[in-house]
Each structure stands twice: as C-alpha cells, then as structure tokens.
Design a protein around this nucleic acid. Structure first.
Lengths: 339, 339
DNA sequence: TTGAAAGCGCTAACAG
DNA sequence: CTGTTAGCGCTTTCAA
C-alpha cells in the first residue's frame, strides 16, 4: 500500500509531453473549456486518460494565483460545541459546494484576537467572500474585508458594514418568555418575574432577547426584577457561578428562567443538580437554542430552535445576488414545545 | 464604513516602490528573515510601517506556489452534530495553529463519495498532511495521499497504510458493558443479555466494541442474545426504526442496552419516549460517547468519554516525529459515572 | 548590505 | 484545431 513519496508531482507539462501536445491544450481539456477551444475529442480523450493514469491533480494554488476569482469561500465560527453552530457549518459547506465553491471554515473560540487573525488568514488565502458567524466584532472583520475588496456577510450577529442574516431574536424571546411565564402560572398559580441568564450583555442578540423578555413580562403585567437579568457570558462555568452568586445573595431562587443558549444551559443545569437548591422541584425553563437531549430532559423546558437552513439560504441568496448594502435579514426561529 | 473594492491588492512590488527598495528585500523583511539577510533595521522598520499603512496582505497562493511546503494541514470529519467530532475539530485547529500550520477542515457527512472528493480537493490545495477522521474508507484516502507524496494519519477509525490513532474500543466497551450489566443486576436482581445498538457492523470500532460487549457478557456468565446485536448505522432514524422492529418482533424488550454513539442514542431515546414501551420503567443504558445533557438524563445512564485531547496529542506527535509506518495507537477512553 | 532574475504551475490571450 | 508566450505574486539563489 505504501508508496515512496514522489520527488515531484505530475504537472500539465508532464502530461503535455506524454501526450505530445502543449500545456495549454492540457489545461483547456482538464478545465472542460476544450469545446470552445475546439480541441479534437480524440486529443481530449487521450489527455484525460493520461491524467487519470498519472494520477494528475490540479495545483489549486497555481490555478488560483493565475485566475481572477479563487472560488474559495470562508467562514469563521465561534465554537463547535453545540448543535446550532454545528448545523450552520454543515449547511454552509453543502451549499458552498453546490455552487462549486471551496469552503474553508475556522473556529475562533470566541476569542476576538483569533477572530481577526483568522479573517486575515482567510484573506491571505484569497477567499472571494467571508461569512462572519457570531463574531464579537463583525465590523472589524467587515473593514478588513472591505479594504481587500472581499465581500462579507454577517451571520447570527449583525454588523453595520455588510449585509447580516440573523434570527428574529426579539420575536423568539418574546414567545419563549410568554410560554415560560404561562407554564409557571399554570403550575404555581401565580405570576412572577423570571431569571434571564447567559449571553453577553453587549451583543445584539442578547440585548434583543432581553427586550423580548421584558416585553413578555409587560404583556403579562409582571414587573421585571432587574437583579435577575444576568448576561454573564456564554461559557457553562460563567452561568454556573452566576447561579451560585445569585443563590448566595438572596433567599428565594426564581422558579422560572430564560436561558440564553444551550451552552449556558449546560452550566445552569449542572448547578441546579449539584447545588441541590431545586431539590423540591425543578424550575421552569426556556432555552434559546435547541438540542435533542435537552428536549428529553423533561416537560418543564421550552426551546427556541433557530432556522439554520433558512438562515443559510438567505446568506447564499445575498451572495448570489451580489448585494453589499448593510441591510439586516431577520429569520423567524421556531418555538417548539417538547413532549 | 464601506469602501470601494480596490482594483488591485497591494503587492510586495508596490511596497518596494514606495520604500524605494526591491521586492526581495520586502519579502525578506515581511518574512522575518531579514536578520540573516542583514537588512538594516532602518529599512526593515520603514517597510513594516508601509505594509501596515497600505494594509498589505500576503498572497498565500503565490507564496505556497513558490515554497515547497505549504504549511496547510487538512482534516476530514464525518459530522459536526456531536460533541466528539466537535471537540476533535477544535483541538485540531488549536494544535495546528500552535505549530504555525493553517488548518482546513471539511465535513463529509459519512458520504464515501464526498469523502474522497474532499480528500482530492485538499490535495489540490497542496496540504502537507491530511488527517482522515472516522473515514468510511481510510485506505482509499491513504492511497490517494501516498500517490501525491502527502502524509496521512487516520483518526478514530484505523487504516492499514498510515499511522492511526483510535480509542481503546474494546477496553471501553468491556468496562461500559460491565457497568450496565451490574446496574441491571442491582435493580432487577438478575442477569440478562443486553441489547447492542448503533454503528456500522463493518467498521473497526463497532466490531471491537461488540467484542468488548461479548467479553463482558462472558465474564458475567451471561449468554449473548444474537438477535439483540443491532449495528444498524449511526443515524438517529436508523436506531429508531431498529428499535421499532425489535418491538414488533418479540415480546419483551431488553431492560438494558449498549448504545453505540450519542447520535444513535438520540434515536433510541426518541423511540423510548414516543413508543411508550418503557412507560413502567426506563432501561439501563450505556452510551459509547459523551454529551453533557445526556449525562443529565438520569442515573440509569453510563457513558464512555473518548479522550480527545489525548488522541490529538498522539496525532501531532506522529506528525511531528515524521513517522509513517501504519501502526495503531490506542488511547484509553474515560468511563464516567454520572450522578 | 542589497538587487536582479529565475521560476513555482497554471491560464488566457494571441498567433498561427 | 493547436502551440507559444506572458505573466499571477512570491521566494530564493546568485552577484554585486
């Protein structure tokens, strides 16, 4: 099975020599542009066969260097540890390939430095277009790309210098909060303010979700408890320690909450189980984001599932149409009740 | 914020002209090789500043084309829909970057065609090395890479023409089965054969896990029920319908099972809930793979967590050392009891 | 100390 | 119908 590493890879020149023709003919044939170059199908045949035999593989670096457009499309994404980003990446790759583009994806672990580092790297690789997903500073990336003449689309978190595709965070949060409020009233016979936990207070999504959260409270005539608004970050540990502090601070813990992302939920649930504070009854939960196992955790959880296919179709529609105005497209998420 | 797309990107020639020097000097400075070229720090300074001002970005295609190593490292991965592969990719990117390599990852959705298509694409992009993760046909990829003189490492699923890093599937399955068997005996006061469900019967991991499963039964003096060995594939739907068929076929469903991957577990759990067959008591489960929310599903579940950091360190050790012999490195997974 | 020049593999005029 | 040629932007001898 093992083969000595060849000193050199087969090039179109090697093929040309073997076929007794020129490199440009080989290039044309292998690119499928031989019809318009009116190369004899005989020659084309021969070249194709030789390429096959020799295990010829195009050198993309050389090809891209020469061409106008690279047909490489990049995406940066914060994490791979949840279904939301996972399916975004999968969809992205699929749709990119369907268009004959080569997708390159990189994960920046919510690190602002790494984020722009990654964007720079992608520009170096001559991406034709860059999707910035959940970026902490989309405009920084937008500027970088703008300067290089590369198109950008923001996904999940909006920016102001390129088109953005995001969920309808306000609407989703409004509906989710309504449901949790209703579930609480049903079980406890009274209305009370919920806890909001998780996410960065500074990001657009979180603030829109808090707005929806407030609106639902207002609708229900419940006054929001400001000490219960805790956008402590996304990491599980952050949510865990925020819960801990809350427990230490006051006497009664809220019996209903809005958890901003499955990742934060991981921390919340961990704390709920470890601390034993909810031993006599689990709280009613609403989670902004979907996960199949969370859906099985019990009937006290409602989830919002962001419409990933819808979002990515919108992204590629923007790319295909060539729009560059910084408009924001809102995609309604799906609020599901899990049984 | 918006900027007109520049007609042309700044090159080292532009910089050279602006600095009143040559392209080679610029190149040397920007690569940090100016010490050994003994370029005056004055000139170096000037060039660096200009590059900054002009927003110069290296053209990697040109650079890679000229160099003999690309410093690009590729990985193909089956799916992004579970924690195992998600963390593999994250670790991979981190370790690659730490070595000054540019990671490119692509997801092949367990599609054998796409798998080799992706491998070919990566070779075209001149990867120095390719990691084939959970590939359906690692040797096919190995051959492709071998022919191109590119190193490969198999991860998760072993191949025979390149080094492989995999979990100790036998050991993990043995211990996991032991525990489920013991849990069942504790609760039901008797020993009985478990169900094995999920995974492809043809892949190495699944067959090793079945071997471990059998060994644990033998140890416990329980005869394996051959009709309960169901490697039905990884997709949730597959597991779901396998459960359905099992229920239709026989009278009593097993009260204990070994589920091969969280993905299969998703289908199993869905069926368990929907069918109502386990209404009077959930079965004891063992899951080969870890997920934080599964861990919260109850005390009737045991999980095996594969040692992703350990596996990736082994992968990069192989890469760093330059080994190419097709040995298999086994990394012990962690069997955790969740409370 | 620095610059000139060759060439990586490929594409796309242009000239037969 | 086919070949020759001129670069794409960069790295790297080799000369000065």
């Amino acid at each position: 099975m093992k083969r000595a590493t060849q000193a050199k890879r087969t090039t179109i020149y090697d093929l040309a020599e073997l076929a007794g023709t020129s490199a440009s003919a080989v290039s044309a044939v292998l690119n499928g542009n031989w019809r318009k170059r009116r190369i004899s199908s005989q020659l084309a045949e021969r070249i194709t066969r030789l390429a096959e035999e020799q295990g010829y593989a195009l050198n993309m670096q050389a090809s891209v260097l020469r061409r106008e457009r690279s047909k490489i499309i990049g995406m940066i994404v914060p994490k791979y540890d949840n279904r939301y980003f996972g399916s975004i990446v999968e969809q992205f790759e699929t749709l990119a390939r369907k268009r004959g583009l080569f997708p390159i994806v990189t994960c920046t672990r919510r690190d602002p430095e790494l984020e722009i580092e990654a964007a720079r790297a992608m520009l170096s690789y001559q991406v034709d277009c860059l999707i910035a997903t959940g970026a902490t500073d989309p405009d920084r990336i937008g500027d970088l790309c703008g300067a290089a003449g590369v198109r950008t689309v923001n996904l999940d978190l909006p920016g102001s210098c390129a088109p953005s595709v995001i969920s309808d965070n306000f609407g989703g949060a409004l509906e989710l909060t309504r449901r949790v409020l209703a579930n609480c009233e049903k079980e406890f016979g009274e209305r009370f303010p919920l806890l909001f936990i998780g996410g960065r207070g500074t990001d657009h999504n979180t603030s829109e979700r808090i707005r929806g959260f407030r609106a639902a409270h207002a609708e229900a005539n419940v006054e929001v408890d400001e000490t219960l608004i805790l956008p402590c970050g996304y990491a599980p540990e952050k949510a865990e320690s925020a819960m801990q502090q809350l427990a230490e601070g006051g006497p009664a813990l809220p019996r209903g909450m809005f958890v901003n992302s499955t990742i934060s939920l991981e921390g919340v649930m961990r704390w709920v189980r470890r601390s034993g504070h909810y031993a006599k009854g689990v709280p009613h939960l609403g989670c902004f984001d979907w996960d199949p196992f969370v859906a099985m955790l019990g009937d006290h959880i409602e989830m919002v599932r962001q419409d990933v296919p819808g979002m990515l179709h919108a992204v590629f529609e923007i790319i295909d149409s060539g729009t560059a105005e910084p408009k924001v497209v809102h995609i309604p998420p799906i609020v599901e009740k899990i049984g």
